[in-house]
Design a protein around this nucleic acid. Structure first.
Lengths: 191, 191
DNA sequence: CCGAAAGGTATCGAGTCGAAACTAAATGCT
DNA sequence: AGCATTTAGTTTCGACTCGATACCTTTCGG
């Protein structure tokens, strides 16, 4: 029943919706559009198995065609590059240029970060935990990909010898510490 | 420094951004667009002092012209009505039609609600409290209007006699219990 | 080796959105 | 009272997103 609107769950949903719009309106900075910022952030956070147009389309919930266009727009601005994948010549590898990386320092999302910084640290961790669960759950329920952190994946095999790489048991690839902290197309939350 | 990305604050910001996009992609249901759903929800939640195109534009962070267009689109779908304000003939009063109210029962945001329902109740209240503070703070920092609940406003004077209305000391108007739970253009969070 | 599946691109139309120019009504100042 | 200013809203235009569709190329599965 929406009519009551006293429900705490609904107020929470409305808050998240509203924060989403706050981000959306801020994201017109630097002559870019919201979806462009999300693309730059994605390329910054995604591991090497996920920096492709297809993964980005899955991440954003948009069609391949739409993503193809907006990537071209970013390329023409000199913010990223596209190369054919060396082993699968259908696929493209995306990478931020140095200008793209530099622009991320102007990311309007840091305004939200400073607001979040004012929260109590312990409550902030609780927040991260709760929202992560809600997000993954919702995406999976819709048949979408959660794009969680690599090291929280059921295929992630942690090494305990210092200096040795971790390992992805799905793709059979070694994983650095940084790899483990990035997000991955193939990630499935560990049980 | 974005380069590290281990920062909990940044992960939290990314989570909120991502939940925002989840809502955005869900909001193409019922042949409407995201901004249309936000408009319907706004009209459902706003008190009688705030159901105008100008308030909606402030709420959404869009220009008056843009809002004017999307309101016309909703009117032509028979979801809301627009009348000139009886006392200020520049202004328009917006109201959902019965079809608009009925459509809100199909609101795709309820999918997020069910996911949020799985959270622990005490943590959910903490979440509401924290996010409310972050949202109001950010909006005010940008010179925008927080649109908080009427009863959490510094101008809200609560009555303690049963059956008697509360009172808005800014507008000099009586306020029902429902009024107090709705959101208001003029709301300023109490100290 | 051939058909099916997967990654990407090109084109088109619908619709958002901001900017700017505009109308009309209310407010304020003298 | 009278005139400038402010406020609410509309209209038009151009840029751009986004989905749908058709298409191309490469890879995979028999």
């Amino acid at each position: 029943m929406r009519a009551m609107e006293n429900n705490e769950t609904e107020r929470l949903a409305a808050l998240i919706e509203r924060l989403g719009r706050l981000i959306y309106t801020q994201a017109h900075a630097e002559n870019l559009l919201p979806v462009h910022w999300e693309t730059l952030r994605f390329l910054h956070r995604a591991n090497r198995f996920s920096r492709s147009p297809a993964a980005l389309a899955a991440y954003l919930g948009l069609t391949k065609g739409t993503v193809s266009q907006s990537l071209n727009s970013l390329i023409s601005k000199g913010l990223l590059e596209k190369r054919t994948h060396p082993r699968d010549r259908r696929s493209r590898q995306l990478a931020l240029t140095s200008r793209g990386n530099k622009l991320l320092e102007q990311d309007p999302l840091v305004q939200l970060c400073t607001a979040l910084h004012g929260l109590d640290a312990s409550r902030r961790s609780a927040l991260v935990q709760d929202l992560e669960q809600v997000l993954s759950g919702s995406l999976i329920a819709q048949g979408r990909t959660p794009f969680g952190q690599c090291k929280a994946c059921r295929h992630f095999a942690r090494t305990h010898r210092a200096g040795q790489p971790h390992f992805c048991e799905l793709l059979g690839e070694p994983l650095s510490e940084i790899d483990g902290s990035q997000i991955c197309q193939e990630q499935q939350p560990a049980a």
